[in-house]
Amino acid sequence: MTMTALPGRGGELAALLLRVAEGLRGCAGCEIYLIGQDAADPDTVRVTEVWRAEDDARAALAAPPPAGAPAPADVLALLSAPPHRTDLTVLGGVGLPAGDQP
């Protein structure tokens, strides 16, 4: 997912998303949740997520955030435009346990 922060607030957005990632530690079905900031445009932040199943991702999004974790509305308040989501079918690679790759 690509997110564009309000001008000059990319660092704040990235920090908030890192807190979201901490709240997902141990979350059922969350294999990867990476936050990256564009080196050429720090107001562009990308989130790479891999979930065991779409239902796991939906359940995590619907659940109340853990204590101290930001709510989705907190993230949305920092965006200058709606996030852009790209869905992929994971074929394999490095980073997932061997038994979880197709």
Rank of each mutant, 00 (worst) to 15 (best):
A53R: 15
V94Q: 09
T48S: 10
S80K: 09
A40H: 12
G11T: 03
A69Q: 06
V90C: 08
Y33K: 00
L6G: 04
A98T: 10
P7F: 02
A28Q: 10
D38K: 05
P64I: 05
A77D: 13
M1C: 08
P66A: 04
T48V: 14
T2F: 09
G36L: 10
D87M: 10
G11C: 06
M1V: 06
D74E: 08
L79V: 08
P72D: 01
I32H: 11
V47W: 01
P97Q: 06
P65M: 09
A81R: 15
R19H: 12
V90S: 02
E31M: 13
R25A: 09
A40P: 01
E22L: 13
C30R: 10
L18Y: 01
V20C: 11
D100P: 00
A39G: 05
G23Q: 11
A21M: 03
G99Y: 02
M3S: 11
L91C: 08
E31R: 14
L6I: 09
V75I: 12
D87K: 09
I35A: 07
L13K: 08
Q101K: 14
E49P: 02
L16E: 07
V50G: 00
A59K: 08
G10A: 03
A77L: 07
A40R: 14
G68Q: 13
E31T: 00
D43I: 02
L24K: 07
V47K: 01
G29L: 04
D38Q: 10
A14H: 01
L61W: 14
M1Y: 06
R58N: 11
I32T: 14
P102N: 05
G8N: 05
E31G: 04
G29M: 02
V45S: 06
P72N: 02
L16C: 11
L76Y: 12
T4P: 00
V47S: 05
Q37K: 05
G8D: 07
L24W: 03
T89Q: 11
C30L: 07
A62I: 09
L76T: 09
A62Y: 08
A71Q: 09
G92D: 02
L61N: 11
G93A: 05
A40V: 08
P72Q: 02
D56A: 06
T44H: 12
V50E: 00
H84R: 15
A14D: 03
A21Y: 01
E54V: 12
L88T: 08
R19K: 15
V45E: 07
C27I: 00
L34S: 15
E22K: 13
L91D: 04
G95K: 10
A67W: 01
D56Q: 04
R58V: 13
I35H: 08
D100A: 15
P82H: 11
R52C: 07
Q101G: 14
A69V: 03
A63N: 03
A15W: 01
W51Q: 06
G11P: 04
P97W: 07
D38M: 06
P97A: 12
L34G: 11
L18N: 10
G99F: 03
G92W: 01
I35E: 09
R25I: 05
G11N: 08
V75S: 14
A40C: 07
A77I: 04
G11I: 00
G93Y: 07
T89I: 12
V50R: 04
P7V: 07
S80G: 15
T2M: 13
P65G: 08
